[in-house]
Design a protein around this nucleic acid. Structure first.
Lengths: 213, 213
DNA sequence: TAGATTGTTAATCGATTAACAATC
DNA sequence: TAGATTGTTAATCGATTAACAATC
């Protein structure tokens, strides 16, 4: 159905294009050349043209790209035109931060469930969604379609919950626990390893002070 | 002082090595070969040897690598042997999640301040650290050394706070707002763009269902 | 010792940058 | 039209994988 496969390096850049094109849209910019966009994004015109040519030919010779068309197309490629049900497992601060992040709804994600093991939280609502006990997960998953489960639980619990989720047929896990989950090939896992990110920051901070000496 | 420069691709992998070596240490594994480690990490022995040879020669012929030595060395390269003061700006759920994450202290990061603009939060404590008002930031920064500021505030406020931080001489920003901050070259910025991460997940979910057809 | 495993060079693969003919 | 800007090919750069002599 789709033509050529798009390289991982390009995929990683697509959300960033999407974000910048959204800003341009807010600023009511209708069209932009690869060169102008590259200046804004601190990228290169060459890379932008290479990237965008992975899908359809959207540019207009002598004019550039239509911001709205291009953004819609990228959104489509990223699957943002689909609607996805998201549950959050772990209703601590991190879980609630994600649950509260209304922005996600704009990208087609709907929070449909929130789970924890702490009985004190049972019934408490976040944006109209009651916190359920983890024991209810199986029943919930049978009654509702779950596309993505965000895992905001300690790493000790993450692997077993992940296994349970794949068993229930949940196709994608957004993993915030500091472990690499071992799941079958068919399950999509996206990791957000905050400690890794902080370590990279730490390294850059080190080499910065080294350079300035 | 340090020999050759280490490539970005290697740097990005170091935190992951650090994590796996920590697990091995917990399991009281003393030594491991590049081949064994590659199986655990779903990587290749060749890449591991290439990566580790960026710093000192740590391997022992016919034996492999000493887990403890190697982990310490990687920690040192990442700067985890230094102690760093961290402040969190934005005491919402995300900010509190980070403030509460005790694990960071093990890597040499100490939470020293927590700021918000909501007067209702003034004086409330998180792990013994009182929430201060953003107005107090300048005075605080003059009185205490701040190495890293985590920005867990809406994107509309992020750029101006970032400018303020750099003005105060804060060398590094851990940015959770969904904008790319425009700061001087000397400031280290590490971005955690959750929406980008979710979009990448969405893409992978799309292509998964495409493949299985 | 003999088997195991490194460090390192060479080969391959992928990603980025440069260049320019085509054309709106 | 003439200037601007694309799509795309070729050149360069960087990262990964393969191979193997050196040696504990």
């Amino acid at each position: 159905m789709e033509k050529k496969t798009i390289s991982p390096a390009v995929i990683r850049r697509l959300p960033r294009y999407y974000r910048y094109l959204g800003e341009l849209l807010d600023q009511e910019v209708e069209g932009i050349s690869s060169y102008e966009l590259s200046k804004r994004m601190h990228s290169t015109a060459s890379q932008i043209r290479q990237d965008l040519n992975n899908f359809d030919n959207f540019g207009h010779l002598g004019y550039g790209y239509n911001v709205k068309n291009l953004r819609d197309k990228i959104g489509e490629i990223l699957g943002l035109d689909q609607s996805r049900n998201l549950i959050v497992i772990g209703a601590g601060h991190l879980g609630q931060a994600i649950a509260n992040y209304a922005q996600f709804e704009r990208m087609g994600f709907t929070l449909t469930g929130l789970f924890d093991i702490n009985p004190d939280l049972a019934g408490k609502e976040v944006r109209g969604i009651p916190i359920l006990m983890l024991d209810d997960l199986d029943r919930f998953a049978l009654e509702h379609r779950v596309d993505i489960a965000a895992l905001t639980i300690p790493k000790s619990a993450a692997q077993s919950v992940a296994r349970r989720l794949t068993g229930l047929g949940v196709p994608a896990i957004w993993n915030f626990a500091h472990v690499d989950l071992e799941v079958g090939e068919k399950t999509v896992v996206e990791n957000v390893h905050l400690s890794d990110s902080l370590m990279e920051l730490s390294y850059n901070l080190m080499s910065r002070s080294r350079d300035s000496k």
